[in-house]
Design a binder for these strands. Sequence first.
DNA 1: ACCTGAACACCGTTCAAGT
DNA 2: ACCTGAACACCGTTCAAGT
Lengths: 203, 203
Amino acid sequence: MPRPPQRLLSPEIITEAAIESVDETGDFTMPGLAGRLKVRPSSLYNHVSGRAEIVEFMRARLMAGIDVTSQSGSWSETVAALASEYRRSYAEHPRLIPLFTAHTVQAGVAFGLYNALAQAFSDGGFEPGETLHAITTVDSFVLGSALDLAAPEVQWSSGPEVNNAMKAALATSGKNPERADAAFEFGMRVLISGLVAQLPTAH
Amino acid sequence: MPRPPQRLLSPEIITEAAIESVDETGDFTMPGLAGRLKVRPSSLYNHVSGRAEIVEFMRARLMAGIDVTSQSGSWSETVAALASEYRRSYAEHPRLIPLFTAHTVQAGVAFGLYNALAQAFSDGGFEPGETLHAITTVDSFVLGSALDLAAPEVQWSSGPEVNNAMKAALATSGKNPERADAAFEFGMRVLISGLVAQLPTAH
DNA sequence: ACCTGAACACCGTTCAAGT
DNA sequence: ACCTGAACACCGTTCAAGT
């Protein structure tokens, strides 16, 4: 069969198919992608350098969906809005997140977000060193929360090893994603009030 | 060659070899493990059910290294000590952590830690629902921070897309693991003071 | 009980051959 | 320019055969 009249593939098409595959199955393979796109596996290599690059394209697509134009109110409200927006973006495709943890984030894809956070912390009165740590703290918390969202139902099997305090806590647990959402909102309140408390002017 | 006089393998020996491999290379394979143990790949299946079980054994070994007997002072000091101990345990083998994010934690391996956290939050006056969210918040933050530790040097390539606030922040950045350690300690202070602020009696 | 050898299905990637 | 077919090295796993 000769080359078809219309182009069958592009990096965007491949990335989209990979995201669909991960959404549905939790992972993707090159043959699986090829099958989804009615193409042979070797054809993919005309558009992407390999599997690793597809993962980076997925990361970039997710990061590009983050809206950093949240110029509302105080610096702490801006940080809260950015963190929520960051996590919302992850939450659209929770099963992608484990794929991202294997390799470090190649800077450049997240400039917008990091710039906006740095501006907010700087405006709030944090020194540069604290600003870097504050960004890292927000980043760590959002990533950890997103992984929590990707986790299936926790089978806690309230056995005898669970003490009373934990039993009572578990009894309140709803299903994902509601439980993970509520935990994230609680953690956000904790984080923001804790950040405010770090400023000398705050006491 | 017949069966050797001494047992060559055990789940513990295999788990240990896997941890060594991940520490050195960031991953492990069954043939790689077999080579390390001077054995054929198929021999491993007499002791473990497969690759996935080895990952769970590594997780259990890491979790078992967490010392939860930190009965010092107030509830918030206990939480801080537990979180630090949790993170210290991860930090001993940072490259393991990405392997753990693919599958959810099967409860049971972390009872001790979760019980101790639940007790501390309950003692502090948190209601059961808040206790669950507080545990999740600590868990998310520690996991995210541990992944930050596993990341290689951040190549930030201070290009023109980086704004002034971010440039100043990056200029203070040291090398890992020192940078990640300092960020974790900053985040811990934020988290603890934020948790204290959630209690009605705290204002 | 436990190690081995051979085998199988599958994966990521390369590359010459086509149009 | 881009899809294909064949090939390669590699991986996880199974299982009958040995002792």
